[in-house]
Amino acid sequence: MLRRLMLFPAFRPFLLILMLLVLWDVAIRVFGIPAYLIPRPEQVVGQLIAEWSHLLKESWQTTEATLGGFALTIVIGIPLAMVIAYSKLIESYVYPLLVFSQSIPKIAIAPLFVVWFGFGIVPKIISAFLLGFFPVVVSTVMGFKSVDPDMLDLARSMGATRLQTFLKISLPYALPAIFSGLKVSITLAVVGAVVGEFVGSNSGIGYVLQVANGNFDLPLMFAALVVLSSIGVMLFLAIDVAERLMIPWHASQRQVF
């Protein structure tokens, strides 16, 4: 049975997780680590089960904020990157500023968003957007800039309009790079949403983490972390599926034929 499961690549990460859990448990027993420093795996699982409905409700809040920030990333980040890729002038104005803005620690300015937008979902969305949009911009710019010049000459020789060249050549050519940016971005957007919840919110997994931390409820804290990582993994997988559907022709997606 185990031998059969090991043959499926999809099961391998779970197998590794299981081994790490065992290692975790053994380490706590062997070194006698007290529960107020690190809880035992079964305590975490216990809290996961006990607080299940609560965690589910809060994780939905975090997911909403993440998806909101991610949507902003797509709507703002990708067009911005296109403009940067197509105009040297705009690039020289905007790009340095973008890098500059990226160096500002979001956690330090997140409280400002609470002051400006209150305790609702808006500051969380902005925080998720700010953390996630930079990788998308960078890789989209790279994607559009690396379009084969011969392809552009080819389109020109056919008398293609700018729009035709964009839709039929540049955009499909840049899609793989855009997707690699989106994959990095989605995981960062989760972090951004939690940052937003840390600084000013009474809902979401970030809030659960803070409360659990305040109450020294380490098992709940670890349970919240498990839920949070699961959100990240699931969103990442969703992007992965979208990528597979949209660029099945790309080298990274090709099946042996």
């Binding site: 011969d150 020789s157 008398g159 039929k168």
Partner: peptide, 25 residues
């Protein structure tokens, strides 16, 4: 025009690559 590299679009089949000429024109 034929270039040194075939400059075929990876996301199009052979037929669709050839038809690009027709689409753009």
């Amino acid at each position: 025009i034929v270039f040194q590299n075939a400059v075929l679009l990876a996301w199009r089949t052979v037929l669709d690559n050839i038809l690009l000429q027709a689409e753009i024109r």
